[in-house]
């Protein structure tokens, strides 16, 4: 259970609702499932300015929700994994 109060997509209004809509559809496309927003973003739902940053970050990383921007001599997703690994990130 989250440590703090979160605002769900169903409860969201304004920019928060816009960003939930973008994120849920982007991840639904990525995972080929119904629209869904990963839990990591909901941490910031009580402060929409930060939630917007999370959505923007996703846009930057995925080319506005299209696909992961790949390239380079090695799968870049391993960099993501490595950060989580050395951070002992449970999430």
């Amino acid at each position: 259970m989250a440590h703090i109060r979160v605002i769900t997509q169903q409860e969201a209004v304004g920019t928060l609702a816009e960003d939930y809509d973008y994120l849920s559809k982007a991840y639904g496309r990525l995972w080929n499932c119904d629209p869904i927003t990963p839990q990591v973003y909901t941490t910031s739902s009580v402060l929409p300015a930060y939630f917007r940053h999370g959505a923007l970050q996703n846009r930057v990383l995925t080319g506005d929700g299209g696909h992961l921007v790949e390239g380079g001599p090695m799968p870049r997703m391993l960099v993501n994994f490595a950060v989580a690994f050395y951070s002992a990130c449970f999430y």
């Binding site: 989250a2 999370g54 950060v83 951070s87």
Partner: peptide, 15 residues
């Protein structure tokens, strides 16, 4: 960017 996500995920205690 992953540093941000790691801290938000674990710090928020989300499922």
């Amino acid at each position: 960017t992953q540093t941000y996500l790691v801290m938000m995920g674990d710090g928020g205690g989300v499922s």
